[in-house]
Amino acid sequence: MKIEGNVVAAQGAFAEKSERDLINAVQQGDKKAYQTLYQTHIGQVYALCYRLTSDKSLAEDAAQEVFIQLWRKIGNYKGDSKFSTWLHTVTSNITISYIRKQRGWLQRMFNIEDSEAMNYSAEQGTDLSDLDGYIALLPERARIVFVLHAIEGYRHEDIAKMMDMAVGSSKAQFHRAKQLLKEWMGYE
């Protein structure tokens, strides 16, 4: 048991060192290393973008934007926190800002009413779980708060800052999301 534990710990340390080396190479401007970093993390980044936007095309564009901006930001990553944690924060901030910009652009171009723009209909045929299907149906603000709090583990205080809203509003949106999910999932 102890040997197995040591092997697992050694593998973990090796993986961490490999990732640190990869990030160092990217910070020096190595684009091949950046492609490897992209391939390692695109699954997580896209899943988060998809859950936040509930729109395949928007999620693809947002994920692309994340990796374009990440190249410019990664020089500031000092390794104080786990890279995946830092990347999730960067992804959440860029995607929320992307949703806002996109909504503003759509409204200006096609004169869409705010209420319509904030209630994108969820895409059909998603290959994610049933719960993901319900999350995609939630109204925009409730969906973003639910994803960040329940799935990503952010505190309401952090979400409030990210979304430029009051802490109470974040809690209210989370409650609203849970009530809707409860109803849609057939609970009384």
Binding site: Q35, Y38, Q39, G43, Y46, E60, Q64, D130, L131
Partner: peptide, 22 residues
């Protein structure tokens, strides 16, 4: 809900290649 949240897939691959544009 807690059980379903714990079993959610943390990864999903996009349908199109995003690297070329990046």
């Amino acid at each position: 809900l807690r059980e379903q949240l714990e079993s959610l897939n943390k990864e999903k691959q996009p349908d199109r290649d995003l690297w070329a544009g990046i």
